[in-house]
Amino acid sequence: MSGFEVERRDKENISCLYVKGFLDAHTAPQFEEAIQNLVDEERFKIIVNLCDLTYISSAGLGVFMGFIEDIRSKGGDLKLSNMTSKVYKVFDLLGFPNLYEIYEDENEAVDKYQKA
């Protein structure tokens, strides 16, 4: 039991990752692998739904940062949704809201991709 789970659901050309538990230096490689799999499959329109994420440290934030440039250069994006206020505060600490699209609800992120 690692305390972290990631589940993937594909909706046409959009892939949504549902993360659950805590994302720290121990579990970040598991999340990194999930995103790497999408990149390898050339699925670059990604939403990460954080509704069940209870904790994140810089190791978790580093995963988002490690992929964003590559994914955007391929015409995709990493959009974030449904984060709790506790998790949002950590993202906010490093200025993530200026660099990432963060939505209250996953459907808003889906709409944004579909209308682009």
Binding site: S57, S58, M65, L93, L94, G95
Partner: peptide, 23 residues
């Protein structure tokens, strides 16, 4: 580090130290 510097240089440990100082 700002985020862009971190992205460019991947400063080892710099992000965690920055967070400690903020927290």
């Amino acid at each position: 580090p700002d985020i862009k510097t971190y992205l460019e240089k991947r400063e080892v440990g710099g992000l965690g130290i920055h967070m400690m100082k903020e927290l």
